[in-house]
């Protein structure tokens, strides 16, 4: 196996609040190889954005990373870099916007409203490389052209409000990719877009992966978007990865009761007669995190005396496909 681009191991993130320590992410581990797209799926409050932000240490000041947590970035021709050990802002700059770029859900909120798109792109290019302003502008125009914005030489001097929603998200992608990052974090990049525009952006992102060969962490709550973009998928619930594997296997043969429930609750166009089966109950408040398996309060296959006490380990379902569930007794445990 090749060296992963980024390796996350036993990531546990807590927030210090007035109500005490709140666990947002617990024992999350995953690797992303160069050129690979990992989809991170989960509902609101599952900890997917907190996990992503940890890769660039973007979480707020009240964040406590567990001492056992490791995030290791392997850049070509460099020593492995322990991201969580970087304490000073100026050490972070090679990671933030350099080796790792991020695009966000709401492109209007991600651009400064009173600075032109071009000046924002040029500023970050000059910060992360030793280009002069003229060269940075050329590169920016090239990137805008690459993501399909017409008349890029004119558009570059416009402001975010002069762009439509789809164009803003394209400009955001152009900006994120102009520094030639090795890893792109895309946090719900298509959620705010209409379906026809979403389809354009998904196509664009697929092209860019094959052209630039970077790894992508693609965060979304939409399983259809994941199926169309990701190579592997990790399903998160209440801060834990409950199931992970190649996207075909996880969607085609879901093994964790939560993944199965999500797929049953999803209205599918290939079977209009299928009843919509909701996942029973509500997501517990983060203040009342269930002990044992985090899903046991809503699970219909709960084993009393086990699921509510012990934390399930990873069970191998198929090659490369694991789930954390005690009901999967037929196969052997790994790790």
């Amino acid at each position: 196996m090749t060296t992963p681009l980024i390796s996350v191991k036993d990531l546990t993130i807590r927030f210090r609040t007035d109500e005490g320590l709140i666990t947002a992410v617990e024992d999350v581990s995953f690797d992303i190889a160069p050129g690979e797209v990992l989809g991170l799926v989960g509902e609101s409050g599952s900890g997917k954005s907190v996990t992503a932000k940890a890769l660039m240490q973007l979480n707020a000041g009240n964040t406590a990373y567990d001492p056992a947590s490791r995030i290791v970035l392997n850049l070509p021709d460099q020593e492995p870099l322990d991201v969580l050990a970087l304490k000073r802002e100026r050490d972070m700059i090679q990671v933030r916007g350099g080796a790792i770029s991020m695009i966000f859900q709401e492109p209007m909120a991600s651009f400064a409203p009173a600075i032109t798109i071009g000046d924002q792109m040029i500023e970050q290019l000059m910060l992360h490389s030793d280009m002069n302003k003229k060269r940075a502008r050329e590169i920016s125009i090239e990137m805008l052209d690459r993501v399909g914005i017409s008349e890029p030489a004119k558009r570059i001097d416009q402001y975010a409000f002069e762009f439509s929603g789809g164009m803003r998200q394209r400009a955001m992608i152009a900006m994120a990719l102009s520094t030639n990052p090795k890893l792109l974090i895309a946090d719900e990049p298509t959620t705010a877009l209409d379906v026809t525009i979403q389809a354009q952006v998904i196509d664009l992102m697929k092209d860019l992966v094959s052209d630039f060969g970077m790894g992508i962490l693609f965060i979304t709550h939409d399983l259809g978007v994941i199926a169309q973009t990701a190579d592997r998928v990790a399903v998160m619930y209440l801060g834990r990865i409950v199931e992970t594997g190649p996207v075909r296997q996880v969607i085609g043969n879901p093994s964790h009761p939560y993944t199965q429930g999500l797929l049953q609750a999803l209205p599918r166009l290939d079977d209009l007669d299928a009843p919509l089966v909701p996942v029973a109950g509500d997501i517990p408040s983060p203040l009342e995190r269930p002990p044992g398996c985090v899903f046991h309060t809503r699970c219909d296959r709960v084993i009393k005396g086990i699921c509510n006490i012990q934390v399930p380990g990873r069970t191998l379902v198929e090659e490369g496909h694991t789930a954390r569930c005690f009901d999967l007794t037929k196969t052997s445990e790994v790790a």
Partner: peptide, 25 residues
């Protein structure tokens, strides 16, 4: 037709039918 084909399918192999609309409303 374009609207229906833009819905991302749950089947990763099902990408061919997509009919893309150029531009925006």
């Amino acid at each position: 037709r374009a609207l229906l084909s833009a819905i991302p399918s749950l089947d990763p192999d099902d990408t061919g039918k997509a009919q893309r609309l150029p531009g925006e409303m």
